[in-house]
């Protein structure tokens, strides 16, 4: 266990330094933030002075070294645009992103598990095939389009749900549905495939021979068994999930780090970008750690190897 934590920590450090370095150089070749800060009324002298105050007049190597130093102390400096320390800005927006991602993820699982099982059990009937068709559709429509569609139906037409922001409790519904749709569809299909595979396993036959109900066999035994391969996929999906969240946050004006990051890219706000990427990297690595720990909990064979 401690070994896993240790290796994850090492991984985290490497990921953050790697991504940070990549980002550091990428943003610096993309253009000059001083221009973006100065605005259209600024003079050339003005711009030069901004560059100096941001330390952008130093050599790239100097800048990189101080960036690495900042990484160690988790001090990313002040956002160029917001004039506030970058990390607290990110941390203030992070709960919203986590909340959205968590609910969307939960929703994907809660819908995909029964839908996938249904599609597997009823694979030869019309309704089972319909589930698969819908999930195919869900997988191929981008979250942006789903988001707009939801807004038009539930906000504009029916007026049931707020279309933007995160103020009312109901605000979470549409963004999380839009964000989870692709995942929901993907997991429905995967769960169906895994489920069909598991149906032929000996322990399922044993369960039947013991007179267990189908529900018990499906939801207790098969589900537990397919959660192992599902978990490894979820681990892979987490990174993609963040990308989806950025888009959905923009559509629903959701006050998370996605919206912050979009602005940071536009304004070439290096400190904010660096802090944001750092936060996302830590989040993804931590979530992967949770996935690993869940592995241990679910699959005793892996647990045995670790111990």
């Amino acid at each position: 266990m401690i070994r896993i934590l240790g290796s994850r920590l090492l991984q985290l450090i490497l990921v953050v330094i790697g991504i940070g370095t990549l980002l550091f150089f990428l943003v610096r070749v993309s253009g000059d933030p001083a221009l973006a800060i100065a605005g259209s009324d600024a003079t050339a002298e003005n711009i030069a002075s901004i560059r100096q105050s941001l330390g952008l007049d130093r050599s790239i190597l100097e800048q990189y070294l101080s960036f690495l130093q900042n990484l160690c102390t988790l001090n990313f400096g002040e956002s160029y645009t917001y004039l506030l320390p970058a990390m607290p800005l990110i941390l203030a927006a992070l709960p919203n992103t986590l909340y959205l991602s968590f609910v969307a993820f939960l929703l994907a699982i809660v819908i995909a598990v029964p839908a996938g099982i249904y599609a597997a059990v009823k694979r030869n009937s019309f309704s089972g095939k319909a589930v698969m068709s819908i999930s195919m559709l869900g997988q191929s429509i981008p979250p942006f389009v789903i988001g707009i569609f939801l807004i038009l139906v539930f906000s504009v037409w029916l007026r049931w749900l707020p279309s933007f922001g995160n103020e009312a409790g109901l605000s979470i519904i549409m963004p999380s549905v839009a964000l989870s749709a692709v995942l929901m569809a993907r997991y429905t299909r995967l769960i169906r495939a895994y489920f069909l595979e598991e149906l032929n396993r000996g322990y399922v036959r044993t369960g039947k021979s013991l007179g267990f109900t189908n529900a018990r066999i499906w939801f207790k035994h098969i589900l537990r068994n397919i959660s192992v391969p599902m978990l490894s996929l979820i681990g892979i999906d987490l990174g993609k999930f963040v990308g989806g969240a950025v888009i959905v946050e923009a559509v629903f004006a959701w006050p998370g780090i996605g919206s912050l990051m979009i602005n940071a890219v536009k304004a070439r706000d290096y400190p904010l970008l660096e802090a944001g990427v750092f936060a996302i990297a830590v989040m993804v690595v931590l979530l992967n750690l949770i996935v690993d720990l869940l592995y241990l909990y679910i699959d005793p064979r892996i647990r045995a190897k670790v111990n």
Binding site: G147, V156, S163, A250
Partner: peptide, 19 residues
Amino acid sequence: FKVIPEDSSRMAALRSGGV
């Protein structure tokens, strides 16, 4: 002032009475 960067979302916010 509510920031809604997406054009279509902003228009929907008006049509839904959100703004």
